[in-house]
Amino acid sequence: MWDHLSVMTVKQLFTSYPYATDFFSSLPNLQQSEESSVAAYFAAIEEDTLQDLGIGRQELLDQFLSFMLQMEKLKEDKVKIESITIIGGRDKQGKVEDIELTIHAGEIVCIVGPTGSGKSRLLADIEWVAQHDTPTNRKILINGQLPDMRCRFSVEHKLVAQLSQNMNFIMDLSVEEFVSMHAESRMLENIEEVTSHIIAKANELAGEQFNPDTPVTSLSGGQSRALMIADTAYLSSSPIVLIDEIENAGIDRQNALRLLIDKQKIVLMATHDPILALMGDKRIVIKNGGISKVIETSEKERENLILLTQIDRKMLAIREVLRSGGRINEIPVELEEII
């Protein structure tokens, strides 16, 4: 690779590999050296400058090459993940976890169980692609096979994207700048198009509209969640999305989940909200650190989901009355019946 890169001028390098500018951004004198060859550029960096940068010349060259190789690798297509399989291990008491569960792309599986029951451990096992080498002794297969174990530590092959109620945006950027920054890090070519598409989708999910130039830090809870979900659906490289509750405020949860499964994500959702739980195809019940059973959402439950959703809408309507300064004198008859 060096033979090929070293003879290019710095300018040519930037034209052929735009991301290379990132590497040079912390190095000195770019303007003057654009016409010199890459090799000449590195040779011309003064010893004092290297000392200040905290790196030796050979190390800098090695880092440059390894940077270029890694960035090229990011562009390669990855193995598409169609399913994950959880093969049971043992619970905290050593009892055998008699289970083999395969989850396919586009499926939603909920995880229920009290705090400390082992939900996080299950998710960690999936993320680590456990091979009988975790406390639960579980084994995880990808596409029905033993996966390439390099995915454990590779940033670009990270299996699990996470989304939880505690997460916030902390960057001082507008929505548009934020999304396009993420798109850039995925080395996409049609950044503008993807960005505006994601913002439009997020706005469909959010109860209240926001603009591309709204700072991400001033989005409401619902808007933030909507943007996080739309962004994860389109831009996250991870095939599995792990959700820890989605609060029922300012976001269309049903469509948010649909967006993720339309993008062929595997959705795992830890929740105690009956509406979210019934939106799943299955739910895993965790007890004592082990999977105690897997419940498939029944027809009856699906019917009840419709009912629960109606009740939920009514609750939201009452909330809206409260929000706009009204009185809550009328409770819908259906709700009274339940009480």
């Binding site: 590497f23 940077f67 960035m71 990270k158 997460m167 916030n168 902390i170 831009l235 996250s236």
Partner: peptide
Amino acid sequence: DIVSQAEREVFAFRVKQANP
């Protein structure tokens, strides 16, 4: 656990750029 998935991904990407 307190920043968004996008920020985590961008941050990890920048770390990878700094130390490939």
